[in-house]
Simulated assay, not measured.
Amino acid sequence: MKKFKTSQESNVAITELMLPSHSNFGGKVHGGHILNLMDQIAFACASKHSQAYCVTASVNRVDFLNPIEVGELVTLKASINYTGRTSMVVGVRVESENITTGKTKHCNSSYFTMVAKDTNGKNIVIPGLILNNKQGIRRFARSMERKASASSRDNKYESSNFKVDEYLEYLAKENVQLDLD
C-alpha cells in the first residue's frame, strides 16, 4: 500500500436517474434517498483511498439547497479532503440535471468522516494525502478547522462545562419560554 495518495486517485462519481419510487409525499426526491446515495459514494471513495472496509463515523452538516425532481439525473461526486491516522473526510457534492433542458442545480454538499477497519473491526492506519493544488490545500485546511471547531463546541456544551447563566440573555430573543425550577 502507498504511504501517500492524491485525492484524484480515489475520486468517485455516480449518476442515477431519479424514479417515482424515490419520491416523498410532496412529489420531490426523498432526502433520505439522497443521504443513502451520499453515504454509499463516501464509502466507495474512502475504501478506494484506504484499500480497506470503511464505516461512517459522522456526517457534518447536511443542507438541502435545491429540490430534486423525479426524472432528473443526479450526479454525486466524492473526493478525499483530509486524512488523519485512521480516518478521512470525504467531501460529497450532489447535482441534479433536468434531462430535457440540460439545466443543472447544486443540491447538496456534505462532509463524511470515514474510518478504515481491518477484518476484526479494528481501526487501521491509512495513506496520507498528497496535496498538489490550491484547492486541495483549501479543502484540507477547512477540514482541519471543522474538526477543531467540533471538538471545541463539544467540550463547551458538556454538562460539566456548560454555564446556563451565560446563555439566558440569548434565549430571551428566541422562541422559547423558560420555566426553571
Rank of each mutant, 00 (worst) to 15 (best):
S21K: 13
N155M: 10
I126C: 06
K173R: 12
S143V: 11
E158H: 11
A13V: 11
L65E: 13
K103D: 05
S87A: 08
K28N: 15
L73Y: 15
G84N: 06
G128M: 04
Y111P: 04
E174C: 15
E9A: 11
A148T: 08
N123M: 04
T101P: 01
P127N: 06
V29H: 10
G71T: 00
N133I: 07
L131Y: 08
I126H: 00
E16P: 02
D118S: 12
T6G: 05
C45Q: 03
T86P: 02
K134W: 01
A116E: 04
V12A: 00
V90S: 01
E174R: 14
D39A: 13
V115F: 02
I124N: 09
A13Y: 02
G102S: 10
E145K: 09
V70E: 03
A42H: 03
T75F: 08
V176D: 00
N120M: 11
V59W: 00
L35R: 01
V70Y: 10
V29K: 07
S149N: 14
S47D: 03
R93W: 00
L65K: 14
F140G: 05
V176Q: 00
L180M: 12
E145C: 03
K173M: 02
V55D: 03
G71H: 02
F43M: 03
P67H: 05
K105N: 14
